[in-house]
């Protein structure tokens, strides 16, 4: 039952992470297009700037829950490694609690932000403006998923599951080159 739920949540976080990857590719393409439009047609776009600003937020925030679930965030284990097993479990519980707290705060305050932005029709300030509720909603959703993975994937509870779900390891750059 718990495993089933974990797999389900992982499908969700992985989909968000894939969306983040696709977004990175679109950033590369849209900015390159903007440069071409500026030189070839003397007509830079008015959408590349605002869309790519928000894209950085999307790239980051969409991938956060999956990286947490699969243990890919930057952390320091020098002290942790030297702790006795009992204290190590306490430390892990504190980490899970902290992650859940951040997820909760982001989900709740992010939701309040969505309401204000949507209710007031807030947007960016250009001729092409991204409605502010969209980045706010991304933050809120990411917070909700972080809360979920914090509860379902305590640090190192299920290393074998985390391993199957892991994306590429940053330390493996060019491993198959």
């Amino acid at each position: 039952m718990l495993d089933h739920l974990r797999r389900l949540v992982l499908i969700g976080t992985r989909s968000l992470a894939v969306l983040a990857m696709v977004t990175t590719g679109l950033m590369m393409l849209s900015i390159s297009y903007d440069v071409i439009a500026r030189y070839a047609f003397r007509a830079p776009t008015d959408w590349a700037y605002p869309l790519n600003s928000s894209a950085v937020l999307a790239v980051t925030v969409l991938a956060i829950p999956h990286l947490y679930a699969t243990g890919h965030h930057i952390s320091m284990d020098l002290v942790h490694r030297s702790l006795p097993p009992k204290l190590r479990r306490v430390a892990d519980a504190v980490t899970a609690l902290a992650a859940a707290l951040l997820g909760l705060v982001l989900a709740v305050t992010g939701f309040q932000t969505v309401l204000v932005s949507y209710g007031h029709g807030l947007t960016g300030s250009g001729t092409f403006s991204v409605p502010l509720w969209i980045p706010d909603l991304i933050l809120c959703a990411s917070g909700a998923f972080l809360l979920l993975v914090a509860v379902l994937f305590p640090p190192h509870a299920e290393p074998e599951l985390a391993a199957t779900a892991a994306g590429a390891d940053p330390a493996q750059d060019g491993a198959n080159a």
Binding site: A17, T24, V59, T60, G167
Partner: peptide, 23 residues
Amino acid sequence: WQNLKLIFASTATVSAAMLAIVG
């Protein structure tokens, strides 16, 4: 296809891990 996936997966991992710290 494999390398393409690898490139985008490690870019997302490295960028998001770094930018999460920024936010």
